[in-house]
């Protein structure tokens, strides 16, 4: 009997990480299982644990500037993950619970990697940084801190930040700092999907019903004052772009405007005419929203300082 293409297992399939197996009798290693759409594997991408390990072994150690920069990106992603996590069990449809859950998990993964790396500077762990810093020590910018609002506000925020993160990570993947480059190279692919997810929803909400269009327009109006802050340069980004470890945020703006502009044009939406907010999160001056978010996120860890979970 000849081997049909359906049962042939390519070599790469059998190499590397094996199946995560299951308590179900007969489903592993049977011919059916190899053709099955339920075959599951962990994949082999760069994980936050790998960064933490490299840091603890001393093979990855950021300088002060890079650590501060990683803290910024880690805090942005962490605050966003905390916001998005709230949608799980509350989304407009069950399928969307899962979609937003995936995005939240991606962001949390990026946060953990950036924070693990940042902590390498002075020997703090991702959890030390997430749970035991006070509000002024956080470095997130305001747009990430904004409350979820309705689904349109969440989508507007997601649309802006994923187009921003995409441009940023795309460039950071070329960073002279190998760890930043590694984290960004993994993250940019995930964020690319976040762009697509939010763009799909921008189109549907803007061109669905009159009600949804109104809400989408309102969502962008709520979000847009905080867009400028994403693209502001400061001394730190100046030094880092000089060394090739990072880029000036302002250099991302043209691509951001062009690509978001294409989607907004297709959705027949205009960029809201609103005044930009001054922000200040990079210096520890936060929105009124962040304190509540941190209070909730940190409460249990702080009730039991030094405990392990």
């Amino acid at each position: 009997m000849s081997t049909s293409p359906e049962t042939a297992v390519p070599a790469e399939e059998t190499a590397g990480h094996g199946d995560i197996s299951v308590g179900v009798k007969g489903s592993a290693n049977s011919g059916e299982a190899t053709a099955s759409a339920t075959r599951i594997t962990p994949g082999n991408a760069l994980r936050p644990e790998d960064i933490a390990l490299a840091v603890s072994r001393g093979t990855a150690k950021p300088g002060e500037d890079v650590a501060e920069f990683a803290l910024r990106l880690g805090d942005d992603a962490l605050v966003l993950a905390q916001r998005l996590g709230h949608w799980i069990s509350r989304a407009p449809e069950l399928e969307e619970d899962i979609a937003l859950g995936n995005i939240a998990l991606d962001q949390l993964g990026h946060a953990r990697s950036f924070l693990s790396y940042a902590g390498g500077f002075d020997g703090r762990s991702e959890d030390d940084l997430a749970y035991f810093r006070r509000e002024p020590e956080f470095r997130s910018v305001e747009i990430f801190e904004l409350p979820n609002g309705d689904f349109a506000v969440t989508i507007a925020r997601q649309f802006v930040v994923s187009y921003y993160q995409f441009e940023l990570y795309r460039r950071l993947a070329q960073s002279t700092d190998a760890t930043l480059a590694g984290i960004a190279a993994k993250a940019v692919k995930e964020v690319d999907y976040h762009r697509d997810h939010s763009a799909q929803w921008v189109l549907r909400l803007a061109q669905g019903t009159d009600e949804s269009r109104e809400k989408m327009i309102h969502g962008f109006k709520v979000i847009w004052p905080y867009v400028d802050e994403l693209f502001r340069d400061d001394e730190l980004t100046g030094r880092l772009s000089g060394s090739g470890a990072a880029v000036e945020p302002s250099s991302l703006r043209a691509d951001f405007d062009r690509l978001t502009g294409e989607v907004l044009a297709e959705a027949e939406l205009e960029v809201p005419r609103v005044q930009p907010a001054p922000g200040g999160g990079r210096k520890g001056l936060h929105s009124e929203h962040l304190g509540y978010l941190l209070a909730e996120m940190q409460v249990l860890a702080r009730e039991y300082p030094g405990a392990s979970w």
Binding site: L78, G85, I98, G101, N102, L105, L108, W309
Partner: peptide, 21 residues
């Protein structure tokens, strides 16, 4: 999910609840 006491536990719990959906 919002109060998970470590980021690892937060990720695990989020993935778990999402699985239930």
């Amino acid at each position: 999910i919002s109060r998970a006491p470590s980021l690892k536990r937060k990720a695990i719990l989020m993935a778990k609840v999402q699985d239930e959906a």
